[in-house]
């Protein structure tokens, strides 16, 4: 902020940002639909299909806005999750142009609008309708790593203090919003739904490396099992997909090393 004020005071004219182009453009959303009620005349099970929607959008708008426009104006049956719409609640994880992202954090101008924008449900979890998947297995893995503070002895009467260095140790993994972008980008998870997955390991990491917590051994034992951290093949899809910029693979590797060297 200071720099801006100085610039305005000394320079002849404040440096103007190049004007953004707000001309609305027509984009095509190619959405993979799945309607569970769409049973064939002879009782055939419903099949997923692609459907194109043309929608007008400002280049600086988000894909979520375009999807809401489709739902509001063209097809009310289009189903997807979204809550806060500001990249915090983690509801609207979906596969946009082949990569897991949050629809509320993906801008139209960052995608190639000359071609249809493909939107699919995240992979590896059962699709319930359109872009809505069954998140229960995902949250079960999260619960299984005990994502809460474990301590022994009497509760202190004041805060549990921690040095800034100790806090820094697990800072990266506190940013998780449980959107499942990472877990459903993992090729191991696609074929082995029993794998704990990156998100659960990230949330275990958050407590394993917390100096105030005493449950590290228990969590490491859980993650040392067959479907734990050793399933990770370091494909880095999780790190690339995380909308919060968490270095997910790095966190998993740290848990692996803690297991090998038994040092937290």
């Amino acid at each position: 902020m200071t720099a801006v004020i100085e610039e305005a005071a000394s320079g002849p004219a404040p440096a103007q940002k190049p004007a953004r182009d707000h001309t609305p453009i027509v984009i095509t959303l190619r959405i993979r639909r799945f309607l569970p009620d769409l049973v064939g005349p002879n009782g055939e099970p419903p099949v997923p299909f692609w459907q194109d929607f043309q929608v007008e959008a400002d280049p600086t708008e988000r894909i979520l806005t375009a999807m809401l426009k489709v739902k509001g104006e063209q097809d009310g049956s289009l189903t997807f999750r979204r809550s806060c719409a500001h990249g915090i609640c983690g509801s609207d994880a979906m596969r946009i142009n082949g990569r897991n992202r949050l629809a509320c954090k993906t801008l139209v101008k960052d995608l190639d609008v000359t071609k249809p924008i493909t939107i699919e449900a995240i992979k590896g979890l059962e699709v319930e309708k359109d872009l809505v998947v069954d998140m229960d297995p995902f949250f079960q893995s999260f619960k299984d790593v005990m994502p809460f503070l474990i301590t022994s002895g009497n509760e202190p009467t004041r805060e549990r203090l921690q040095s800034p260095e100790d806090r820094e140790r697990f800072d990266d993994t506190t940013k998780c919003i449980l959107c499942a972008c990472c877990t459903t980008s993992c090729p191991v998870f696609w074929t082995d739904g029993q794998y704990f997955g990156p998100a659960a390991i990230v949330n275990a990491h958050r407590f394993i490396f917390d100096s105030r917590d005493e449950g590290a051994e228990q969590r490491l034992e859980i993650l040392n099992e067959k479907e734990g951290v050793w399933r990770c093949r370091t494909t880095f899809n999780c790190t690339d997909a995380c909308p919060r910029g968490i270095e997910v693979t790095k966190a998993i590797q740290e848990v692996k090393r803690a297991l090998i060297f038994r040092r937290v």
């Binding site: 299909f49 082949g98 990569r99 699919e120 980008s185 899809n237």
Partner: peptide
Amino acid sequence: MPAGTLYRGREGMWSWV
């Protein structure tokens, strides 16, 4: 039945493949 698209992974995924 039209299939879903291939996941567009980057260096990490393709080096693993």
